[in-house]
């Protein structure tokens, strides 16, 4: 039945169909323009709403990316970005033979590694502990307090640290004095910088970081626990056998974000806490960039260091995301 009209009428109809299609294509082409025009006439308002945001991103975030070319130029303020002469990879060669820069790269990685080792598990442990607390009021009060330091500015955090670790007035040395030990001027000693910095980070962010894990725990199906109770499991076993495996995807995602951010040490707090005496352990890439570029005016060299940092960070984020996509089918985007 289907074949009937092809055998019976044959060619003529096929030709007619081709012609009709051709005409239709022309029509479509003209229609596309009128339709596009129609679309903009009808929907101009959403484009008008988007425009300021796009312009803002171009002016404040993409234009600096264009300005990154000074990393390959002998930048002079008077000639500007576009007219300064190219020098190729000269600044990068300078960087990689500069001991201070190499030390800053190594410090960045070491501080991030410490943050990962101690700072990453802290909010997970905290969330698991919050989950075991039965008294809702107690839990709420404790949460309110431990979230608070996240909202305190780094200047204040640094002010608290400086006061508390002060050699004569600080509480830390007062306590040390109770044990008959001599006071230590912590903030001038290179070996103390990283423990103080990482510890401050945990104090400030562990509580707030637990929110994500608490939300993941809240999403675990209650029936799992109910059947575990029937099987006679205790709370400790439930934590290891149910809670932790259930929130493993969240843990993995957060770990990936952390690894992607290895180059992003919170340098604002470092600038506030370090001093020349502790540069050898405290100076990271961004603080070095700040001193070379914004304080000493070596814009091109500092921009090259910043570019190096940004490219490594970008590569880390991309790698971490694709690894996550492959192994857990959860990716950030």
């Amino acid at each position: 039945m289907v074949e009937e009209h092809t055998t019976a009428t044959g060619l003529p109809i096929e030709e007619a169909v081709i012609e009709a299609k051709e005409a239709q294509r022309h029509q479509v082409k003209n229609d596309r323009w009128t339709r596009l025009l129609d679309h903009f006439r009808r929907e101009w308002q959403i484009y008008a709403m988007l425009l300021p945001t796009i312009v803002w991103f171009v002016v404040f975030l993409y234009k600096p990316m264009y300005g990154l070319q000074i990393a390959f130029k002998d930048y002079s303020i008077f000639r500007g970005v576009a007219n300064s002469p190219w020098v190729g990879f000269e600044h990068f060669e300078t960087l990689f033979s500069n001991d201070q820069f190499l030390r800053a790269v190594s410090n960045t990685i070491k501080i991030s590694a410490l943050n990962l080792l101690f700072g990453f598990p802290a909010p997970i442990i905290l969330a698991l502990m919050f989950n075991e607390i039965l008294n809702a009021t107690y839990k709420r009060a404790a949460q309110t307090i431990v979230y608070l330091p996240h909202f305190i500015s780094s200047v204040i955090i640094a002010g608290i640290v400086i006061t508390a670790f002060s050699p004569t007035a600080g509480i830390v040395n007062t306590v040390i004095g109770w044990f008959g030990l001599d006071p230590v001027y912590f903030l001038t000693q290179p070996e103390w910088f990283r423990p103080i910095f990482v510890g401050t980070g945990i104090w400030q962010e562990a509580g707030f970081g637990s929110i994500v894990f608490l939300a993941a725990i809240a999403g675990v199906s209650p029936s799992l626990y109910e059947s575990a109770v029937v099987d006679g499991a205790n709370r400790w076993q439930m934590m290891w056998k149910i809670t932790i495996p259930s929130i493993l995807p969240t843990i993995l995602i957060m770990l990936i974000i952390r690894i992607g951010n290895i180059m992003e040490v919170s340098f604002e707090l470092i600038i506030l806490l370090y001093q020349p005496a502790t540069y050898e352990t405290a100076d990271v890439v961004n603080t070095w960039v700040y001193r070379q570029g914004l304080q000493s005016g070596q814009y091109d060299l500092a921009a090259a260091a910043g570019l190096f940092n940004a490219v490594v960070a970008f590569a880390l984020v991309m790698t971490a995301n694709s690894l996550s996509r492959r192994y857990s089918r959860t990716s950030l985007w």
């Binding site: 679309h39 929907e43 959403i46 484009y47 988007l50 945001t53 796009i54 991103f57 404040f60 975030l61 993409y62 234009k63 600096p64 990316m65 300005g67 990154l68 000074i70 970005v81 961004n286 960039v289 700040y290 570029g293 914004l294 814009y299 500092a302 921009a303 910043g306 570019l307 940092n309 940004a310 960070a313 970008f314 984020v317 991309m318 985007w333």
Partner: peptide
């Protein structure tokens, strides 16, 4: 809005700035 043309592009255009940043110096000079 689903009817926004180039929606995928604009979203990527904005999200890209979360993963790549020109850094302190170019921002300051800008």
């Amino acid at each position: 809005r689903p009817q926004l043309k180039g929606r995928r592009f604009f979203n990527l255009f904005i999200a890209f700035t979360m993963w790549f940043n020109a850094g302190l110096i170019p921002f300051f000079l800008n």
